[in-house]
Design a binder for these strands. Structure first.
Lengths: 358, 358
DNA sequence: CTGAAAGCGCTAACAT
DNA sequence: ATGTTAGCGCTTTCAG
């Protein structure tokens, strides 16, 4: 921890201090103002089922109101209450796919009375680790983790510290004990994309994907290969390219495609990479679906704005977010709660980027 | 608070318990293992400049390491240490504009040793309020707030509870004391967009924008009007439409445009609304820049993927995020620190959507 | 040089 | 029906 130490907030006199005091009031001051004990205040504010004279209850509530009392969550959590914080740790904050998931998680967590800490490991295991230390220090109630690597120390540490944890989208390798998991069907997305092109009469289909360290990402490629195989097709050399998940990576992969041989292309990642590929196609004057039929895995904002629009494989981001959040909440109620790995299906979204050549 | 109470995490025996115990170890256990006092452990772990025998120091470090000790941030913060949590409260989590800002804030906060809680008020003041209560309960160290309404109770409460706070992008009304502020120049974005169209020879320029409750959003419209005025132009009735910030709103506004009269259009919001407008143009066979020249305020992912590409006003999201985060960190060090409102300039991004009719 | 102990604000068992 | 009090895990003053 080489960070600059930051002193605790100083208590400076302000124009409009809180109530009479200059600091945010504690249960003790509420008790004083209500002329009762702190225990009573605690009972009232937590709505415990201890019987109290309604009049007293009222007095406490009023005092709290007047002082602008806000319970100190860390003091309660020291006494074994929940912290009220859930964490989501994702590898690509800027990626729509994860953003959509986070939005849902946040919404559900909010309704359950939590705040959500969203952290970005930026595909960097070291950073993931250092974030984890902070999350553990915060004693978060639970975590949704989409790991940067398949051999994730992070997940193991969460388990070790008994923090309920859901693994999101990316699978850990076999050495890692099995965690609760919510993801989408990568294999099916590759399979379905390819299948739709085959159904439109294509035989010479290329594939551009991410050269990822995460094993189940490669299921998209496997889905592509399987769909080809099921129809007796074999990709030639140079039809399949894996590269970085960046605009540049998408460009490089596109540059390498043998356009004279192929009639169709599966673009397996919608983020920056797909953008690079499409820009390259545009710049080289290769238009879809005339020169090349396309299916994209993922639904970027622009999928239906491009002309012709893109045929896409839609992943259930919202549903994934809800599933992960709901499962996590269940585990908070009962840490032993387990559910089978939930691998959500994808759907095909029609678009104008497939030319039928049957 | 009608949320279901959730019990604190139960302590269940696990396959691989933490060290010898079944719970995450405390400073006390580290002290025991290092055969010293908790005070010494605290001094060592916080690297305070109390002199200790190197051997003792080593022993403590080793014990902590072996036990997998992680400091409990809430216990320390009870003793007046900083909390380690910053909050960002935005009104539209799904909007790229805010996402890009959040990414930067998160990155900077991370480097300073904080975790970031990102909350979405969804343009809903009541929700904003209930989130605020939770953030106050967490005793967050600081907050970056982009309020859902211009008369923001939220900001006032933060001030009242002496939480350092930066207002982001949206201005509060005059009744609210002046807060530290980071935003972009809405007026200039409207002005520049319009100006560029005028320079290309356009005179009959329409404007589509958001019918927002936030005052400074309307500066975009004012910029448009000023640019027109400066060139002796007056928008006719029906050239200016404000509507909801949704795909539907963008469609409705577009439907109302008098296409036979106008030659150019400023689309003042890049989010869903712009998408609605563009979809409507496409569906009605109005192509840019042939039938209509376009300038868009904002740079959605797709601005350079569309053909022709869109001319845009680029807002400095990354810079805004960095500015807000940096300013907030400064205020943590010195709560009295003030800086003049920082209103960052926008830039024009060339695109193929402007036809020169000079 | 190091340790004991007083609290930070809260909850809940244990008095009364 | 309500109040007293013992901690939760930590930091820091004060005493050895």
């Amino acid at each position: 921890m080489r960070e600059t130490p930051i002193p605790a907030r100083k208590r400076v006199m302000k124009n409009r201090p809180l109530a009479d005091s200059d600091k945010t009031p504690t249960i003790k001051e509420v008790a004083k103002r209500a002329r009762t004990s702190i225990a009573t205040v605690s009972y009232v504010l937590n709505n415990k089922d201890r019987y109290l004279r309604p009049e007293l209850r009222e007095r406490v509530l009023l005092a709290a109101e007047e002082l602008g009392y806000v319970k100190n969550a860390m003091a309660s959590s020291l006494k074994g209450q929940r912290r009220g914080i859930l964490a989501v740790l994702v590898p690509q904050f800027g990626n729509n796919f994860f953003t959509r998931i986070c939005v849902e998680v946040e919404a559900i967590a909010q309704r359950a009375g939590f705040v959500v800490t969203i952290c970005n490991s930026d595909e960097n295991p070291a950073q993931e680790r250092s974030i984890l230390d902070r999350l553990l220090a915060q004693r978060i109630d639970g975590c949704i983790l989409s790991p940067a690597l398949s051999r994730s120390e992070t997940a193991i540490l969460l388990e070790r510290h008994q923090v309920p944890c859901i693994i999101l989208e990316r699978t850990l390798d076999a050495a890692t004990p099995d965690f609760d998991f919510v993801g989408h069907d990568n294999f099916q997305s590759g399979y379905l994309a390819t299948r739709k092109l085959i159904e439109a009469g294509h035989r010479r289909i290329a594939f551009i994907g991410w050269d990822s360290p995460i094993p189940n990402i490669h299921d998209r490629k496997n889905g592509y290969l399987a769909a080809m195989g099921d129809c007796g097709l074999t990709p030639s050399d140079g039809w399949l390219h894996l590269d970085e998940l960046t605009v540049e990576g998408g460009r490089r992969a596109a540059e390498r495609l043998p356009f004279s041989e192929i009639t169709a292309l599966v673009i397996a990642h919608h983020h920056e990479m797909a953008k690079g590929t499409l820009l390259t196609l545009q710049e080289r004057g290769i238009s879809w679906p005339r020169d090349l039929s396309l299916v994209l895995i993922g639904t970027p904002e622009w999928h239906d704005l491009l002309r012709p629009s893109l045929a896409c494989i839609q992943r259930p981001e919202e549903e994934m977010g809800r599933a992960a959040a709901t499962l996590l909440l269940k585990k908070l109620h009962d840490p032993r709660h387990r559910e089978p790995r939930s691998i959500l299906p994808v759907t095909f979204l029609e678009g104008g980027s497939i030319r039928s050549i049957s």
